[in-house]
C-alpha cells in the first residue's frame, strides 16, 4: 500500500466520520463545527485530486462564508432542541440506495450480450435500451419528492 492509497483512506475516513457526526448530533452548533471539519476534509480530497484553485475556493467560500452565515442564522433563531424523526424510511431508503449503488459500482457485469459494458457507457446503454424504465423511475422520483413535501407539511398529523 503506497502513500497515495494511505492518504486516500485517511481523507475518506475523515469525510465519512465528520459527515456522520454532522447528521447525528443533537446540538446545531456542534453540527456546524463538524461541518467546518467536513469542509476541510473535502478541501483535502480536492487537493489530493490536483485541483488547487478549487480547493482554496472551496475552503474560503464554505468555511469563510457559508459556515459563518449558518452560525449567524442559528444565533438569530429562537432556542430549541433538534428532534429526530425515527421512522423506518429514514433508515431504509439510504441503505437501499447505498446497496444498489455499491452493487452497480463494484459488481458491474463484465460480459453480457452487449460487449464491453462498463460503468463509463452504462448510462448510454441504459438510456438506449431501457428508456421506458428511466421514465418510470423519473416519475417515481418526482412522486416521492411531492409526497415527502406533503408529509413534511402535514407534520405530526400523518
Amino acid at each position: 500500500m503506497d502513500l497515495g492509497s494511505i492518504g486516500f483512506l485517511v481523507i475518506s475516513a475523515l469525510l465519512i466520520s465528520t459527515a456522520i457526526l454532522m447528521v447525528s448530533t443533537k446540538n446545531l452548533i456542534h453540527s456546524l463545527l463538524y461541518m467546518f471539519m467536513f469542509v476541510i476534509s473535502v478541501t483535502a480530497m480536492i487537493l489530493y485530486l490536483n485541483a488547487v484553485f478549487l480547493g482554496i475556493a472551496e475552503l474560503i467560500i464554505y468555511n469563510g462564508g457559508i459556515v459563518l452565515l449558518l452560525a449567524i442564522g442559528i444565533s438569530s433563531m429562537p432556542e430549541g432542541t433538534v428532534k429526530r424523526i425515527n421512522s423506518k424510511l429514514s433508515f431504509a431508503l439510504p441503505v437501499i440506495v447505498l446497496a444498489v449503488t455499491s452493487f452497480l459500482l463494484l459488481k458491474m457485469p463484465s460480459s453480457s450480450y452487449s460487449s464491453s459494458l462498463n460503468y463509463t457507457n452504462f448510462g448510454t446503454y441504459f438510456f438506449q435500451n431501457y428508456a421506458g424504465l428511466l421514465l418510470v423511475l423519473a416519475f417515481t422520483a418526482i412522486a416521492s419528492i411531492f409526497s415527502t413535501i406533503y408529509i413534511i407539511s402535514k407534520g405530526e398529523k400523518v
Binding site: V23, G80, L89, F91, L93, V97, L98, T101, S102, L105
Partner: peptide, 20 residues
C-alpha cells in the same frame, strides 16, 4: 464514486430524519 455515494446516502439520511 463509492465514497461519494456513501456521502450522498449520509446526506439523504440527514434530510429524512430531521424536522429543522
Amino acid at each position: 464514486l463509492l465514497l461519494t455515494s456513501i456521502l450522498f446516502v449520509i446526506g439523504i439520511y440527514g434530510i429524512l430524519s430531521r424536522r429543522e
